[in-house]
Design a protein around this nucleic acid. Structure first.
Length: 415
DNA sequence: CGTCCACAGGAATGACGGGCGG
DNA sequence: CCGCCCGTCATTCCTGTGGACG
């Protein structure tokens, strides 16, 4: 792992060639860019550094558990510290291996393990082996290499929620079976309630040390943006107030630095597109909308057919002034839509699951309500504007033609 | 205060396409 | 090429439940 070093001069030339009047180097605003200094995270960096330091003298550092919401700098700080650690270890000729895995992106136990194996130079086939087998190979390789390994499991909560804590359990126990290898685990979680899902044994082992990342406050975000904008924008392209606005907007949204940086970058891009010399407030407002819209469009486009049909059902119900419909009704409409397309109908259980997935993606809102005597169900309503859905679905070969369909089952009732 | 609706949502299981070792 | 295991998506069966109604 290494910090991304970007050739600043090269970027200036590049921007000049492209005639940008706004950006010096927009890559600095990307959230995977790690600056040389992380404002307002000195404390966390020092703590993590301090906990990991013993590895330089050959002993196993404690496992660390790190929490904090998205965009609070967890990943950046960890990468930053590990980068320094690796450099130092080379300096003093101590071997340390570091492996960073994003569990949400890896997705499964198997792929997490295979990445861990890869980091110690052990090639594991993409698929085809039993998880236990991979684990044995991993242990064997660790034993023979005798190098301490620091594993970072980013977004580990996503893995546990989807797969259970079996892998984590095995990993925490791994040192007991090894004579020479030493493995430290650094778990990063976005979800504060995540601890409750863990086996107490795993929890106590994993959180020998805990580090909490609080959300950034508006002034802190401002400092971050200030620092980056010096590298990212040409002089004079940012008038005062823009940074304040971006940090205020992002602070309102859980103090998410990622969001703040996105806002600033997109606002800059919009200003650039307008041929302006500097970013205006309205660009930031537009950026706010554009980010959200792009996200939704992306989500809608990649939805599988049946999810689209369910969503289309909710869309039609809203169109018929039946917003806040319940699971059973959505299912009825969905069945009709399947019928129209000659597609097989999924079970209500499955559709209920799809509704939850759509809810998590933020395209609809579904919350459980109880009508007492008249049952307990989910109230479902559209979470995005109808026009966005229409714009995306109209081009869809399957769903497009359903946008004007009037479901029969809606005619018999009214809201 | 118990009943009972209309589901929620967990668990077990299966079908399927894909990839690997042998 | 076979047999095995993978992950994904779905079905089936199931137990659980908030609260208005009686």
């Amino acid at each position: 792992m290494s910090l991304e070093r970007i050739d600043l001069l090269d970027n200036i030339f590049e921007s000049f060639l492209q005639g940008s009047r706004i950006f010096k180097n927009r890559d600095v605003l990307r959230h995977d860019f790690i600056p040389a200094y992380l404002p307002h995270r000195e404390e966390q960096a020092q703590r993590i550094g301090g906990i990991l330091a013993p590895v330089l003298r050959g002993s196993k550092p404690s496992n660390i558990f790190i929490y904090g919401k998205t965009g609070t700098g967890k990943t950046a700080v960890v990468k930053y510290v590990l980068d320094k650690l690796v450099r130092k270890s080379r300096e003093v000729h101590v071997s340390v291996e570091v492996c960073y895995v994003n569990c949400r992106i890896a997705g499964t136990d198997y792929r997490v393990l295979s990445q861990l194996c890869g980091s110690i130079g052990l090639h594991i086939p993409f698929t085809g082996l039993a998880v236990g087998e991979v684990f044995d190979r991993f242990k064997e390789a660790l034993e023979s290499k005798r190098i301490p390994l620091i594993t970072v499991l980013d977004e580990v909560d996503a893995l546990i929620k989807a797969r259970g804590d079996a892998v984590l359990y095995e990993l925490t126990r791994i040192n007991e079976n090894l004579k020479f290898g030493r493995v430290s685990i650094l778990g990063i979680s976005n979800d504060l309630r995540f601890k409750e899902l863990l086996d107490p044994r795993v929890l106590s082992s994993l959180s020998e040390e805990e580090v909490v990342f609080r959300p950034y406050s508006a002034p802190e975000l401002r400092d971050i943006l200030q620092q980056r904008s010096k590298l990212a924008f040409l002089d004079g392209a940012l008038v005062g107030g823009i940074i304040n606005l971006c940090s205020a907007l992002a602070a309102a949204e859980h103090g998410d630095a990622r969001r703040a940086l996105d806002l600033l970058r997109v606002a800059g891009e919009l200003a650039e597109r307008d041929g302006e010399r500097y970013v205006k407030e309205e660009h930031v407002r537009q950026a706010q909308e554009k980010i959200e819209q792009d996200r939704v469009v992306e989500v809608l486009n990649t939805l599988p057919l049946h999810s689209k049909l369910v969503l289309c059902g909710v869309y039609l119900m809203k169109k018929a002034n039946l917003n806040g419909s319940i699971t059973g009704d959505v299912f009825e409409v969905y069945k009709e839509l399947c019928d129209q397309l000659g597609v097989e109908v999924l079970t209500q259980r499955r559709v209920s699951g799809l509704i939850n997935e759509l809810d998590i993606m933020g395209v609809i809102t579904a919350r459980v309500v109880s009508f007492g005597r008249y049952g307990r169900t989910k109230k479902v309503s559209l979470g995005v504007s109808r026009s966005v859905i229409r714009d995306v679905f109209i081009d869809d070969n399957w769903v497009g033609r359903l946008l004007n369909y009037a479901p029969k089952c809606l005619k018999t009732k009214s809201s």
